[in-house]
Amino acid sequence: MLPVSLLVAIVLSVGSLSPHDVHARQTVIKVAGSSTVLPIVARAAEAFSARHPHMRVMVSPGGSGVGVKLVGHHLVHIGMVSRRILDNERAGFPQADFHIHVIGRDAVACVVSSEIHDAGVTILSKEDIRRIYVGEVTNWREVGGPDRDIVTVDKEAHRGTRHVFMEYIFGISRAKTPGVDLVTGSNNEQLTKVALSNAAIGMLSHAWLNTDVVGVGIRDGETVLTLTDEHVQNGTYPMVRDLSLITDGTPTGPASKFIAFLLSPDGQRIVHEMGYVPVR
């Protein structure tokens, strides 16, 4: 399999060569992975480069799975992940020593199109959500909404948001969901699909919620869990996850500087500004 990885490496490195790299003597820190973590890192990259003009941070999306893979292949310095690193991912890189640096926390919301929310679906039970995703419930009427078919929106299987959501709803992060109508990739894509529909249910990072895409309360047994900063901080909201940067081994040089910046008060302020919960 060596030639394949080599080929991939060549393709990726050729793609990322810009005139900037060649002419200026800049150190480039490459970061890739989770689209949930990306806004923080992208904003932090600007602030970081302003302070260290000789260092440039290149950030690209792709999902947590991609972050792990690219760090494992040493194609990027830092990976962004919004979920645990899976056992099979660790097994894929036996020689890698993944270090995890938690930079913030995020909550995953179960979201519905605003039309559905306005029509009265403001709370769904955990069991309702499960039944929608396996296809046992296909009309909003059955869960107290209007008589309209449900557009069930899922995410690509390796996405961190999906892992957190499914782990809570189904008890396993890689649950099978035969009731699904659409599969999307990034948070932005999920947001667009749910917002454009008038009958959709989906899962979205807290930071992406807006007036077109509204989070619903989740009834778990007797309690109703609503997504508020307070509930995230005191741990009562269940779908909370760490947002992390990962490196192979202890980070050194520019990469360690960048991670330290994200953990500094200025970095943590960016975490808060982007709609997430700081860790320090």
Partner: peptide, 14 residues
């Protein structure tokens, strides 16, 4: 397009 980057290089998925 959806899964290429995630599967890159190794394993049966690739």
């Amino acid at each position: 397009g959806r899964e290429g980057a995630e599967a890159i290089g190794v394993g049966l998925h690739w």
